[in-house]
Nucleic acid binder design. Structure first.
Lengths: 202, 202
DNA sequence: ATAAGTAGTGAATCATTATTCATTCTTTGT
DNA sequence: ACAAAGAATGAATAATGATTCACTACTTAT
């Protein structure tokens, strides 16, 4: 027998896969999941359409992966913020400042499999917040309340403000990905959310 | 010349149109816009598929109309609540209790034309809230803040809580359409939102 | 009854895309 | 150099479903 997969090949395949992922991300960022065509992705990535299917079961699976990837980083950021020092209210406030770019993904209409990921994503956020709220309640810096429900409100308020159709920010990827801008917006969301939680004017 | 459209005919057409609208609504309520097939709608309405196109330009137009209809009633309810007596904070609180069923529509992935309606819908709500918040600020019962931004947070928090993927309520139409239930849920949303606005524990 | 015009029909068409797979190209070990 | 295996290709296929349109059925006015 002759061919045995070698490191060099593994690497080349990995590169192709990455190229596919990157181009998919780009397509999704431009026109959303709905309009991202397998053919176009293949074209951008410089592979044949068939090749996509050597790396992913189906279009949906590819999309689900994109979603997970784009999402993971942001959730991690929030988790990190919630894990660091300060009291519960302070940590929450820091966490609210965290996510910047991936929120845009939670607004987009998609296939069932991606929808599943989206649910997981929102839930991940909500869970982080819920835990933090509970801690705040235990510490006494947040009044007693239904932490689960409040965390849902938080996610909703933030999502709508940052990426919903009402959002004042342009929904282009570039600007929402930048680091520092739209501070007044973020600040007023934070104020609203913190007041909603604590019932304390600041 | 012979045939001239008569009242009887006008009426019959109107009935067919209404049947189409109703069945579309039913389909959408069951499986969402995505999966509502023109053929099935026609079948349910007892007309040929072609007939749909005598009443509506296109599938999208039909859907847009459904959306408008389902939506209008709810927005009216909120407007009414905001118009009645009491101070700003009280009126807002009443309005938050208003919408029940149509929120489910704002979560659903749809075609561009429907998307447009959805935007209008969210905006309608947000505008109502924004106006009410401004009034509350003028009256002094709500502290000064960015009314526009706060109204966006309200819409987001409510939408997520009632119909988002995190919603604890089943997303079936029947129960969310009922009048009185899920009070604890609604109450905690209201508490969160009112605190977010007023910064006052209740 | 007849003619003129409108409404209704639904099988056929058209358009769109994801997916397949027979074929060609590369890599690898001998 | 050769054979065995895998990888890549992309034209062809398949599936879906909206939309059309040639035709029939009905309504109306004379």
């Amino acid at each position: 027998m002759a061919y045995r997969e070698t490191e060099k090949m593994r690497q080349r395949k990995a590169e192709a896969r990455k190229r596919i992922v990157d181009c998919t991300y780009q397509c999704v960022a431009e026109g959303g999941f709905r309009s991202a065509r397998v053919t176009r992705i293949a074209g951008l990535a410089g592979v044949a359409t068939g090749t996509i299917y050597r790396h992913f079961e189906s279009r949906e699976d590819l999309f689900a992966e994109i979603f997970r990837l784009a999402t993971q980083r942001e959730v991690d950021k929030v988790a990190e913020a919630l894990a660091s020092g300060g009291n519960g209210a302070e940590r929450l406030e820091r966490a609210l400042k965290g996510p910047q770019m991936a929120w845009s993904l939670i607004a987009e209409p998609v296939d069932p499999k991606v929808e599943e990921e989206r649910l997981a994503y929102r839930k991940a956020y909500a869970n982080l917040f819920e835990k933090a709220i509970r801690e705040g309640i235990d510490e006494g810096c947040i009044p007693d309340q239904d932490a689960c429900q409040s965390s849902t409100c938080l996610v909703g308020a933030i999502a709508e403000s940052l990426v919903g159709p009402l959002s004042p920010t342009q929904t282009t990827q570039e600007n929402s990905a930048t680091e520092d801008n739209n501070d007044p917006l973020v600040n007023s969301i934070i104020r609203f959310c913190m007041q909603g939680l604590t019932g304390t004017r600041r």
